[in-house]
Simulated scan of single mutants.
Amino acid sequence: MTGLSTLVQGAGPALLLVHGAGGSVQANYGPVLPALSRHFTVVAPDLPGSGRSPGGTRPLELEALADELVDVVTGAGHESFFVSGYSMGCAVAVTAAVRHPERVRGLVLSAPFVKLDAAARATSDRWAELLDGPPEELARFILAVMCSEQYLARLSPAQLEGLAELISASLPPGSPAHLELLTRIDLTGALPRITQPTLVIGASGDRLLSPDLGKEVAGLVPGSRYTDLPCGHAIAAESAGPWARLITDFLVSV
């Protein structure tokens, strides 16, 4: 029995949502939940230490986390389902698809990576360092790396300050464990084993993870499709409508 806090809403085929490191269901998928729920029964757990999910006492392990999320969906009464992963959540989605091919019907991987490159690792390390400092400083850092330059340029100083305050007030206590797992992920061997229809979505203005990392993922998944959106890593904040349409249009065609 899983202890993860889970949102279940909507109607239709089941769709498991897996959020990213240092995020939550609401932070990473909130703006697209209404659109997705019109077509799918959305099953959206908060990872350990995010939202209302308790943190663990041991380091996170990708295989155990993937199995736990599969248990969440089957426990909600769905024998098979689609999976949408975002950022680090893509690694969980891929692992679930490889370990449970009889249950996972199709994948959408948004802002994914095979493993962190040197630039992304340096950013992750800086994020982890800032966890011990003032939350306001970390919030400004997160804004800078998660959002595209174009998006930030459209915001007023008051809007920027409001976003920073919102981030600093909602930093997940599980962030250290998430970021530690991030550094250990390597999907080189798993991606070629995916048998499900897969859409890979990159973010052309991503300043956290290079868009080239997403293209590398698509190149390793047999028969996958690749597309991108003109936004930063915070896809839900910058391109909610187009993102929801890409996810929906692909999965309803599977």
Rank of each mutant, 00 (worst) to 15 (best):
L4K: 05
G10D: 06
R207H: 14
P135V: 11
D117M: 03
R52P: 00
V114F: 03
S210K: 12
I235A: 07
R193E: 15
A93S: 14
G51L: 05
L199E: 12
P172G: 14
V70Y: 00
E149S: 10
P134L: 10
L65G: 08
T6G: 08
P45I: 06
T2C: 05
V25E: 09
D125R: 05
S110F: 05
A139D: 05
V8Q: 03
G241I: 09
I247Q: 15
S253A: 15
E61D: 14
G49F: 09
P112T: 06
I201H: 03
Y226E: 05
L166N: 10
V72Y: 08
I235E: 03
A218E: 12
M146F: 12
G106H: 03
L179Q: 05
R99W: 01
T227P: 06
M88F: 00
L246Y: 09
L60H: 13
P112G: 03
E102M: 00
P192N: 07
V108D: 10
G75L: 02
F113K: 01
E137H: 04
T2M: 09
I167C: 10
V92E: 00
L199V: 09
A11C: 09
E129A: 05
V72G: 09
L166Y: 08
G205Q: 08
A118E: 14
D206Y: 12
A93F: 09
L166I: 04
H178P: 10
R52E: 14
P197G: 13
A244C: 10
G232L: 03
S5A: 14
G30Q: 07
F82Y: 14
A44L: 06
L163V: 10
Q9F: 05
P59E: 03
L36S: 11
L17S: 06
G202M: 05
D249H: 13
T123W: 01
L213H: 01
L62P: 03
G219W: 08
K215L: 09
G10S: 10
V42A: 12
H19D: 08
D71N: 02
L36H: 10
Y151G: 01
G75A: 01
V32S: 10
R99Q: 06
H19C: 08
H100L: 02
E61Y: 00
F141Y: 15
P45V: 05
D206H: 11
S37G: 14
P112N: 04
E238V: 14
D125H: 07
G106C: 04
L17Y: 06
E129L: 03
G55Q: 14
E68N: 03
D206C: 13
P173R: 11
H39F: 06
S5V: 04
A14I: 04
A203I: 01
L229I: 12
D186T: 11
R245T: 15
D132C: 01
A237H: 10
D125E: 14
S5Y: 03
G3D: 09
A158D: 15
G55A: 15
R126A: 00
P230D: 10
F82I: 02
Q159E: 15
L130R: 08
E63I: 06
R225D: 13
V83Y: 02
G232F: 02
A153H: 13
G205Y: 04
G106N: 04
V221P: 01
E149C: 04
L208C: 12
L7A: 07
A21I: 02
G106P: 02
Q26D: 15
T74E: 12
E216I: 07
R126F: 02
